[in-house]
Simulated assay, not measured.
Amino acid sequence: MKKLDRNRQMDVLLLHNKVTGTHITRLAEKIAAFHKRTDIIYKKDCWDLHLKFNDLAAEIPYLQQFAGEAGEDRADIINRAIDCSNSFMERQHHLLMGRLEAGYFRDCHGDLHSRNIFLLPSPQPFDCIEFNDEYRQIDVLNEVAFLCMDLEAFGRPELSGMFISDYNRFFPAIRSPEEQQLFLYYKAYRANIRAKVNVLRARGADDDLGRDALLTEAGKYLLLMDGYLNDLNAGSPAS
């Protein structure tokens, strides 16, 4: 077993502004190559995505109790997000089914974000989801949306844009305006999940300071989710 240099982990490099365009292009090429050769999934319940999205509603009472003055605002964001998610999925369920039939659902990494990537001469993702096939066998666009959302959470939207542009050049996964909208939805979904994870961690915090820090982090992802969904609504034919 070889121990990798923690200083080459992508999240650490992002904090020190050391992630370059070359890193991003090499990573996009590697992820695209992996997605091209991994198993295609032809049987999948595409409709369960919005149910996972709606799970965040269970955290509203906790946020209202412990998030201070922001609690009600966070609750409003969640309720708006769920309405938007339900509406989008009703309109675009056919799009998901079409992508499933076209082979865009594959046996992916499942947890592709900057803390799970080393930027070596050849980028090295690690720590894929092995314990749950359902979380790993997803639309490739859902997979890369996680990384792009993470880059934007670090305040690097230009790297996110570069990654999806390069990835789409190596493996065209966005071929239409509808699929561009789906990519936005997937980013909102990933921000939703990160928000929920931070709220659940806050519930188990040992002290008020730790709890408040985690709730602040959850709030960051809720605002990011809200921004994606506002963009989604702005681009919707029904808007």
Rank of each mutant, 00 (worst) to 15 (best):
M1K: 12
K3D: 10
L4S: 05
R6N: 13
R6E: 15
R6I: 13
R6S: 14
M10E: 06
L13R: 15
L14F: 08
L15Y: 07
K18M: 08
T20E: 04
G21I: 01
T22G: 11
L27Q: 03
A32N: 01
A32C: 00
A33V: 02
H35R: 06
R37G: 04
D39K: 13
I40P: 02
I41C: 00
K43Y: 07
K44W: 01
K44A: 02
K44N: 04
K52R: 06
L56R: 00
A58S: 08
L63I: 03
Q65E: 07
F66N: 07
A67N: 02
G68W: 09
G71C: 08
G71M: 08
G71L: 08
R74W: 15
N79M: 11
N79R: 15
I82D: 04
S85M: 08
F88P: 04
F88G: 04
M89H: 09
E90V: 03
R91G: 00
H93A: 11
H94L: 08
H94E: 13
H94I: 01
H94A: 12
L96D: 03
L96A: 11
M97C: 12
M97K: 06
G98D: 13
G103D: 00
R106G: 02
C108E: 03
C108H: 05
H109I: 06
H109F: 05
G110R: 06
L112F: 05
L112T: 08
N116T: 05
N116G: 05
I117K: 10
L120A: 03
S122V: 15
P123Q: 13
F126W: 08
D127G: 09
C128Y: 11
N132H: 08
D133S: 13
D133L: 11
E134A: 15
E134Y: 08
E134C: 08
Q137T: 02
I138F: 02
I138P: 01
V140Y: 07
E143I: 12
V144A: 10
F146G: 13
F146C: 11
D150V: 05
L151A: 01
E152W: 03
A153K: 07
F154I: 00
G155C: 01
G155R: 01
G155E: 04
P157F: 04
L159H: 00
S160W: 00
S160L: 00
G161V: 00
F163Q: 03
F163L: 09
N168I: 10
I174S: 01
L184Q: 10
A188Y: 03
A191L: 10
A191W: 10
I193R: 11
I193C: 06
I193V: 15
A195H: 10
A195S: 15
K196C: 12
V197K: 02
V197F: 05
N198M: 15
V199P: 10
L200G: 07
L200Y: 09
L200N: 13
R201C: 11
A202Q: 07
R203V: 14
R203W: 07
G204A: 14
A205L: 10
D207F: 10
L209I: 15
G210F: 07
D212S: 14
D212R: 14
A213V: 09
L214V: 13
L214E: 06
L215V: 11
L215K: 11
T216A: 14
E217M: 15
G219M: 14
G219C: 14
L222R: 11
L222E: 07
M225F: 05
M225E: 15
G227T: 02
N230D: 12
N230V: 10
D231S: 12
D231E: 13
D231P: 00
L232P: 05
A238V: 11
S239W: 09
S239C: 12
